[in-house]
Measured scan of single mutants.
Amino acid sequence: MALNTPQITPTKKITVRAIGEELPRGDYQRCPQCDMLFSLPEINSHQSAYCPRCQAKIRDGRDWSLTRLAAMAFTMLLLMPFAWGEPLLHIWLLGIRIDANVMQGIWQMTKQGDAITGSMVFFCVIGAPLILVTSIAYLWFGNRLGMNLRPVLLMLERLKEWVMLDIYLVGIGVASIKVQDYAHIQAGVGLFSFVALVILTTVTLSHLNVEELWERFYPQRPATRRDEKLRVCLGCHFTGYPDQRGRCPRCHIPLRLRRRHSLQKCWAALLASIVLLLPANLLPISIIYLNGGRQEDTILSGIMSLASSNIAVAGIVFIASILVPFTKVIVMFTLLLSIHFKCQQGLRTRILLLRMVTWIGRWSMLDLFVISLTMSLINRDQILAFTMGPAAFYFGAAVILTILAVEWLDSRLLWDAHESGNARFDD
């Protein structure tokens, strides 16, 4: 018995066209964080690309023209004298008006014999932002004059995390709450300039795509075929072959399989920071003279006294001054041990922890910024005066060393310790 099946006739004509040209192939790229070699397709503007294995951002879609970056830099340069030299806060102490600005706080630190601690604050609040705007201006002028731009481009990517104007702005709020127990506070004209400078700096850093600047100024022929001998440069993120001198053909720094002496430098910085954190938390970090009496505060006791007036601000200072430094030390110690013992479990967790400490590390400088600003506000000789204690130097040095330890660690070593050939990683 035959089955009668109805015929289905399409209502619209289906047209099949042959592909007349070869589909576009992607360029081969190595991930600078996990060293995976993959094919990167062509990316349009405002599109980002991520590593298929570790999800690290390979290409950032946010990109401004150099002219727009230069305009932002010149605007920031105009704001800087007002943000640093004009009063941020006014207080009335014992019937006398006192003005506080950024430069005055750094000068008070240096004047009291601790120039190293003052230079830490100076670099993060004044030096690094000033280098940022002058570097962008150098790129703008240098591109037109045919100057060598490689050193500036190499420095810009590392400079971003040292620009800490946003953290200093939080420190202004913390210092205001600490001082309000002794005097009446009012915002100064410099505060508005400083807030504007923070906003412009944040926007500029978020749109400063150094890798795209490398592509514009020093374009290189990408690798179009897969080759395990391809290496990625950690300076400019170019994937290719080393030249005859073993250097990256684009930025001219040595092109090595792994960062040289990464573990040794990381261990040295980490152990030194552990040693410095002990006096930083045991010795007094601030000293207040009130009517001839002397009151010393460690980091913890200062947080407890701050909690009596504002528990939320005390929580912020606790996280930045105690929780973050010790968390960074514990995480980095764990990561280094996992590399030495070739741990194969929990790779995803370790990668996330490394990215976390990379982002939060700079916030530990908050305590030094609060001390710097408070020193310029309260300084009335023996009637009422505020000065920093010996722990300030140890704390600042420990924070900087932990930042350097994270920067010096080559994250690809975590993958080397893991089993080879993993296309995915999980716990």
Rank of each mutant, 00 (worst) to 15 (best):
G171N: 15
H340G: 11
E21H: 08
V170I: 06
T358N: 13
I19Q: 09
M155E: 08
V174R: 00
S305F: 09
V203R: 08
S286P: 01
L353T: 13
L78Q: 02
V329G: 09
R221M: 14
V189N: 14
C31Y: 00
S193E: 02
R256Q: 04
Q29C: 08
I339Y: 13
A223K: 13
C343F: 15
A71P: 02
L347N: 12
M155C: 03
S119N: 02
P6Q: 07
G95A: 09
I58M: 05
S119F: 05
K178M: 01
E86R: 11
I285C: 03
T202Y: 15
V121R: 00
L169W: 03
Q108N: 05
D63Y: 12
P284D: 12
R144T: 10
I136W: 09
H418A: 03
G292Y: 07
H90N: 06
M76T: 05
Y289T: 06
D243T: 11
N101S: 09
R250Y: 03
L165W: 05
C34K: 00
I287G: 03
A223R: 12
S119A: 11
S65G: 09
N143K: 15
V232Y: 14
I14N: 11
R245E: 12
S305A: 12
Q382C: 04
S301H: 06
R158W: 03
Q264K: 04
L257S: 06
P24F: 06
L3R: 08
L89I: 05
V324P: 15
L413A: 08
Q29A: 06
V133Q: 04
R221I: 14
L191R: 02
R362F: 02
A269N: 04
A83S: 06
E407M: 14
F82S: 03
E86W: 02
L276P: 01
V317L: 02
I316C: 15
A272M: 03
A417G: 09
H207K: 09
S372C: 13
A417H: 07
I131F: 01
V313N: 15
V179Q: 01
R258Q: 06
K178S: 02
G346D: 10
C343K: 14
G146E: 03
L154I: 09
F217G: 15
P41R: 08
I287Q: 08
V329S: 10
G95V: 00
L278E: 10
A49Q: 05
H207I: 15
F238G: 12
F393Q: 07
T67P: 10
A398N: 11
V179C: 11
E42R: 06
Q345A: 14
V399D: 03
Q264E: 04
D243A: 15
N379K: 10
E228H: 13
P325S: 08
V102P: 03
R250N: 05
T75Y: 02
Q244K: 14
C248V: 00
V198Y: 15
V399K: 00
I136K: 13
Q104Y: 04
Y394P: 02
E215I: 13
S39T: 08
G302W: 00
W267I: 14
G361E: 05
D99M: 09
I330Y: 13
I378T: 01
V357M: 10
L66V: 10
A187H: 08
I58W: 07
R144S: 13
S65K: 08
H184W: 13
E296G: 11
H418G: 14
R25K: 05
L384R: 00
H46M: 08
K342L: 12
I371P: 03
L3G: 06
C343T: 11
R225M: 13
V174M: 14
W267P: 13
S45P: 07
G127R: 00
C251E: 00
G235P: 08
L335R: 01
V324F: 15
D114Y: 09
W359T: 15
I14S: 09
I274Y: 12
P87L: 06
N4E: 09
M164I: 02
D99Q: 09
R216Y: 13
D35L: 01
D426A: 04
V195F: 11
L401D: 09
F192S: 08
T402V: 08
L69D: 04
L169N: 04
M72G: 03
P129A: 12
F82M: 11
L368M: 10
R348I: 12
I371A: 00
L159A: 04
A307R: 14
V163T: 09
L139A: 02
V163Y: 13
H237M: 14
R158T: 13
R355C: 12
C236Q: 00
C54L: 00
C233T: 00
I287S: 06
L154M: 04
I199M: 11
N310F: 03
R158G: 10
A128M: 03
A398K: 10
S420D: 08
K12L: 05
L366S: 15
L377I: 04
P242K: 12
A272Y: 02
S309H: 10
I319W: 12
H340L: 10
R245T: 10
V174Y: 00
M147V: 04
L3T: 09
T327V: 13
V125K: 07
L257E: 12
L270P: 02
T9I: 05
W107H: 15
V210Y: 15
E22H: 11
A2P: 15
L149M: 09
P254A: 05
L77A: 12
G20M: 06
R348F: 13
E157Y: 11
G85L: 04
A385M: 04
G85I: 03
D297V: 05
L88V: 03
S411A: 10
G95P: 01
Q382S: 09
G142Q: 01
M80C: 07
Q29G: 06
L336M: 09
S364C: 02
G190K: 01
D243N: 09
G113M: 14
Y289L: 05
R17K: 07
V232K: 14
I285Y: 00
Q55K: 08
L366V: 09
G246L: 11
L384E: 00
Y138G: 06
C266G: 11
G396S: 04
L352F: 11
M80E: 04
T5K: 11
Y138E: 01
Q264N: 04
A128L: 02
F123K: 01
P242R: 14
W408P: 11
S39P: 04
H261E: 06
A196I: 15
A385G: 05
G302R: 00
M365L: 04
T9W: 05
V198T: 15
R17D: 15
M375Q: 12
V16R: 10
K265E: 09
L404H: 10
I43N: 10
F217A: 15
F192Q: 06
V121Q: 09
G246M: 13
R256L: 13
L145V: 15
S308E: 12
I371E: 00
R150G: 07
A423Y: 15
L352Y: 10
S48Q: 12
L139C: 05
L149E: 04
Q47A: 06
A183M: 02
H90I: 04
L278P: 03
A183K: 00
Y138T: 07
V195W: 05
Y50M: 05
R247V: 13
I96K: 03
L347F: 12
M36D: 05
R53D: 06
L306R: 00
E157Q: 12
G240C: 11
A183N: 15
F386N: 00
I285Q: 01
I43G: 09
S321Q: 04
A183W: 07
D63R: 15
I106K: 02
T374C: 12
R258K: 08
S286Y: 01
R225D: 15
Q29H: 09
L37W: 05
H207P: 15
Q264P: 03
M332N: 07
A73V: 07
F217Y: 13
A56I: 09
G127W: 02
F38V: 09
L353M: 14
M155D: 02
A70N: 12
F74I: 09
D60F: 07
I96E: 01
T75F: 04
P284R: 08
E212A: 15
C34R: 00
P219V: 14
F122T: 10
T349M: 15
H252T: 07
I96W: 03
S135N: 06
I131L: 05
R260G: 09
Q382F: 12
R17F: 05
S376C: 04
I136L: 11
D181Y: 04
S286V: 07
L306N: 00
R247P: 06
L77C: 12
R250G: 12
H418C: 04
M1T: 00
G421F: 05
A49P: 04
R59D: 05
